[in-house]
Write a protein that binds this DNA or RNA. Structure first.
Lengths: 65, 65
DNA sequence: ATTCAATGTCAAGGGTACTTTACGCGGTGC
DNA sequence: GCACCGCGTAAAGTACCCTTGACATTGAAT
């Protein structure tokens, strides 16, 4: 599952740490998400979507399975 | 986190087992989701949304935190 | 009365999301 | 040269999603 987190974060001139603080997770978690190491929980996905003012579907890309 | 799974499933006259099969998960997983025992992964949330033809946000209700 | 479908509970186990801590590395600025 | 910022890696631990399997309950149909 890919996502647009890094792109959206940079558009908003945010560091990984700032985004992590807004989400109440660690910087490691943001790094791992941006680098596609794992999928977020639905709660974290929702927090991120809320921060960016978008829906989950607009940020996370579920390829055909 | 609450959700509308049971309501949507019943509207469509589906059993828990049928929905579980469509999602490729076990019946236990559907029971636990419907009864609010835990939150789905984002992948499962997406599968369910796709089956019902809705978005994740239309099915899962993230209360203010 | 018995059977069967649909729903539910309980417990144990594996995989993974997320944390914490520590360290490396390139770029920029003094 | 040195300090610092932003980004990255690695390893170990905790919590939780999801599975498997076995069994209980309720309601409808025969």
């Amino acid at each position: 599952m890919k996502n647009a987190i890094q792109e959206l974060r940079k558009q908003r001139r945010m560091t990984q740490e700032e985004l992590a603080d807004l989400c109440s997770v660690t910087r490691q978690t943001i790094i791992s998400l941006e680098n596609g190491r794992y999928n977020p929980s639905i709660l974290l996905a929702h927090k991120i979507a809320k921060i960016f003012g978008l829906t989950i579907e607009q940020i996370f890309f579920f390829e055909e399975e």
